[in-house]
């Protein structure tokens, strides 16, 4: 199950559609890294709203995505974390520290638009 990545100006938007296997998550990370390099993107939004469970692997991968895209000059924002999932994450002890988050795509794009150096 490949995650569709949409290019919107200086930003890339990855919309997760359904539960992802470990392989899918790795592939997403690699695709985003490649595309940020290819398009010199400034912002990346990863939308996880359909996910009703996020375990340590998924959370670590999101963190990896944020780090690798940052190394290539892009700012990543994770959006759409469901209330129960957010709760489970803090109980688990993995609260995506150091990774920017926003409520939804609209908020994320607004934030990215306000960053210095944005188009």
């Amino acid at each position: 199950m490949s995650v569709p990545i949409l290019k919107q100006g200086p930003n890339l938007i990855a919309s997760i559609q359904s539960a992802l296997s470990d392989e899918d998550l790795i592939r997403l990370r690699d695709n985003l890294a490649a595309q940020v390099g290819q398009y010199r993107s400034k912002g990346v939004v990863v939308d996880v709203s359909p996910l009703d469970v996020m375990d340590s692997f998924a959370i670590r991968t999101l963190r990896d995505i944020a780090h690798t895209t940052k190394l290539r000059g892009a700012h990543t924002i994770v959006v759409g974390i469901q209330p129960e999932v957010a709760f489970a994450m803090v109980q688990l002890g993995l609260a995506l520290e150091g990774v920017a988050t926003a409520l939804d795509l609209e908020e994320a794009l607004s934030t990215l638009g306000a960053l210095p150096g944005a188009a």
């Binding site: 959006v79 209330p83 957010a86 709760f87 803090v90 609260a95 409520l103």
Partner: peptide, 10 residues
């Protein structure tokens, strides 16, 4: 934990 969780929701 609650504060951390609210951050996750932006």
């Amino acid at each position: 934990q609650t504060v951390e969780a609210t951050r996750l929701m932006g």
